[in-house]
Design a protein around this nucleic acid. Structure first.
Length: 475
DNA sequence: CTGGGGAGGGGGCCC
DNA sequence: GGGGCCCCCTCCCCA
């Protein structure tokens, strides 16, 4: 039987005028036929998997056994590719893998995708599927999950409450799906995490499940997130950065402020026109909706965020909480919640002096004390220690810092508006009225502060406070 | 181009 | 669980 010519319904056609007796034979290989062939091949492989025919690989996910073909896994997942190529010689041996970082249901979705090109995503499983795909280094799945999340968060798109099933047959067929990742991509991401070798065993010797330990935690997640620009987390950040409203400080993502440069952020004048007020309302509305969507995202976090970490002295497993967006694990749920902000872009702590938002209250406090309160008792110019007697607070827009008397005289007293040092602790909320001041201005705009106003508002507590955005929007 | 310093962000951990 | 502190890292600006 001619295996090439006869593949079920997908036949290759001879060129016109060529009989079967003519040699050599030429075959028409149209795109349609190619696609049909690939589709059929995938179908055949899937059928073989379901019938456990020629399966040479066992994957154990939380106790549930999955049988698959090594070559298919190799072609579909960077994780499997790395491990299968890492392993010692002995291709005849059966290969086992054990996972405890995602559920059997999630792996079912992944495996079905590998063998069918159908990614069964829903709002309930997308996070965990993406997390698993990140772990398994399946760029295409991560990409689809991101798009799914993005579309779910996109306020311009009408809500699609019903779960969606992405048909990806055209993009994740055997050729594009498996071969989608170039060798370069494999090296660069999306997940630079090296698979824990201890996880893999051969000859049915099952590995320990406690592989998400300190090493993985610290060595991979942090470094991968911070140094690999194409790591899943960074991709997500980049994605979210695209999603964010440039005028929406709530969703300003980590580092984006700095990437724009100090003078890159133009604040809108507080004396906005009526149209600006409409814009403000729109922005607030959009922000509220985004916050709502973020809440929904939080709500859809998979329940399985607790994973077994390393073992303590008594060989008892220590639970850790895994970030659904990256490989980072933390000891406490609260820390995970804090960590998640770097993925969601949520910045619940705004500075009322400069409108800058921060992920944490302590960062806001630090910023406020440094930038707006001149708490540092050092001269900005000569860095010497200053006291209330030897220095003054200098105001530059909403910024305040201290200068020693000598430096002030050197610069020129007339050019610098000064506060008394007592005024340094005053409430700078009134400085919100400063129009268009930019921190990065090369041309300094020295602002004369009104001591009377300073005296009216006192107490930094009015500034440093956690603001509930939902309440803010209602105002 | 390079090094220092400031500002901001994130993780670990204690209270 | 939240707040806060400490530490480290990265980015950016500037001399």
């Amino acid at each position: 039987m001619d295996m090439v010519a006869d593949l079920g319904a997908n036949r290759l056609y001879r060129a016109p005028g060529e009989s079967s007796h003519q040699q050599p034979q030429r075959w028409f290989n149209t795109a349609d036929i190619t696609v049909a062939h690939q589709s059929n091949l995938l179908k055949q492989l899937n059928q073989q998997r379901r019938q456990e025919l020629f399966c040479d690989c066992s994957v154990l996910v939380e106790g549930q056994l999955f049988r698959a073909h090594r070559n298919v896994l190799f072609a579909s997942s960077g994780y499997f590719r790395m491990l299968l190529s890492q392993g010692p010689d002995g291709l005849s041996d059966s290969v086992n893998a054990t996972f405890d970082v995602f559920s059997p249901e999630t792996f079912t979705v992944i495996l079905d995708f590998i063998y069918s090109g159908q990614l069964d995503l829903s709002s309930h499983n997308v996070i965990e599927v993406m997390s698993a795909a990140s772990y398994l280094q399946m760029n295409n799945v991560i990409s689809y999950c991101k798009n799914f999340i993005k579309s779910s968060l996109d306020i311009s798109v009408k809500d699609e409450d019903s779960d969606r099933c992405l048909s990806l047959s055209e993009t994740c067929s055997f050729t594009s799906g498996a071969g989608e990742e170039t060798s370069e991509q494999q090296q660069q991401g999306p997940c630079s995490v090296s698979p824990p070798p201890a996880l893999w065993t051969r000859d049915n010797s099952r590995s320990q499940s406690g592989f998400i330990g300190k090493d993985l935690d610290q060595d991979t997640s942090a470094s991968a997130m911070k140094t690999n620009p194409s790591s899943p987390a960074n991709e997500l950040n980049a994605e979210a950065e695209d999603m964010q409203d440039p005028q929406d400080p709530l969703y300003t993502l980590p580092g984006s402020e700095r990437r724009r440069g100090k003078g890159g952020t133009k604040r809108r004048a507080p004396n906005s026109t009526r149209s600006n007020q409409h814009e403000d309302l729109d922005i607030q509305e959009a922000r509220a909706q985004k916050a709502e969507k973020a809440e929904e995202l939080y709500a859809t976090l998979p329940p399985i965020v607790g994973v077994i970490g390393h073992f303590n002295k008594d060989s008892n497993p220590i639970m850790r909480f895994k970030c659904p967006f990256c490989t980072h694990t933390v000891k406490r749920k609260a820390d995970l919640k804090r960590h998640l902000r770097c993925h969601t872009g949520e910045r619940p702590s705004p500075c009322q002096a400069c409108n800058k938002r921060f992920t944490r209250l302590e960062h806001l406090r630090s910023h406020f004390e440094t930038i707006h309160q001149a708490r540092k008792l050092v001269c900005r110019k000569c860095k010497c220690q200053v006291t209330e007697e030897t220095g003054h607070v200098v105001c530059e827009g909403t910024r305040r810092y201290r200068m020693c008397t000598a430096c002030i005289q050197e610069v020129g007293c007339d050019n610098i508006p000064m506060d008394s040092l007592e005024g340094a602790n005053e409430e700078p909320a009134l400085l919100l009225g400063v129009d268009g001041e930019e921190e990065g201005d090369t041309k300094r705009s020295w602002m004369v502060t009104d001591d009377d106003d300073l005296a009216e508002d006192s107490g930094a507590d009015l500034i440093i406070q956690q603001v509930d955005d939902s309440d803010e929007e209602l105002q």
